[in-house]
Amino acid sequence: MENVFLKYMRERVGKMDNVSAPQAEGPVITISREYGCPGKRIGKFLSEVLTDKLKRLEKKGEWRWLSKEIIDESARELKLSPQLIKDLSEYKKKSFFENLALFFSDTYYPSDAKINNTIANFIYNAASQGNVVIVGRAAEAITKNFKKSFHIKLMAPLEWRAEIISNTYGKTISEAKRECQEMDRRRAMFRHYFEKDVPDVNFYDACFNCKEMTDDEIVELIVIIAETRGFI
């Protein structure tokens, strides 16, 4: 499969000769989130509401939402397990014995760049098809220049997120806080590959505080903006 994302990036920074490719269309909505915020739940809910809008307007098509599929498809492309791709892309630390096992393994493990670019290529292709909500994986940076795109970030105070993680996974509040901070750090490392040191404000169009807003309120506001921008 041609890596259209890398082709696009080369054109964007002026490394291609002659005529550059036309701007990608969309529509695509991306959802980034701090750990503990309900990104997947809101992504699924949003796609259902947008699809229902299309039906009531008697328009063809539906909205998809992608999260787990990004890792699954990238793993298939790289011929590795989804869990390994997830761990590598999230810069998960390995134990001494895990590293020792990899050292003596005959299995080929691709570089961080190859993994990240494979993930980005899948996201770029999915967004190019339009009518898609993409959760996580630096999708806001990968699709920022799409003609029809809207990028949001879900945030909440650390204490609130830690309580959610504690209740969900049976951890102490202290353990949950450390997990939130570690996951935020690892996700930031992945985003940094695409965003470098550019401030968040350059990538996100809106931020929502999940502690203060319900899922219904967040989705309703996103739908209003989607309608205003001609996404449906």
Rank of each mutant, 00 (worst) to 15 (best):
L100D: 10
A101Q: 13
A101V: 15
L102D: 15
L102A: 07
L102M: 13
F103K: 15
F103P: 00
F104R: 09
S105L: 12
D106Y: 13
D106S: 14
D106N: 13
D106W: 12
T107D: 13
T107I: 15
Y109N: 08
Y109M: 12
P110G: 08
P110M: 03
P110K: 00
S111I: 08
S111W: 03
S111T: 14
S111N: 04
D112G: 05
A113F: 11
A113K: 15
A113V: 14
A113M: 11
K114V: 15
K114Y: 01
K114N: 05
I115L: 07
I115Q: 01
I115F: 04
N116L: 12
N116A: 14
N116T: 01
N116P: 02
N117Y: 07
N117M: 08
T118I: 10
T118A: 08
T118R: 07
T118P: 08
I119E: 05
I119V: 12
I119W: 00
I119F: 01
A120F: 03
N121T: 02
N121C: 02
N121Q: 07
F122E: 04
F122V: 11
I123N: 00
Y124C: 03
N125L: 06
N125F: 03
N125W: 04
A126Y: 04
S128Q: 09
S128K: 09
S128E: 05
S128H: 07
Q129V: 11
Q129H: 10
Q129N: 11
G130A: 09
G130M: 01
G130L: 04
N131I: 07
N131V: 09
N131P: 09
V132Q: 03
V132S: 02
V132C: 02
V132R: 04
V133P: 07
V133C: 02
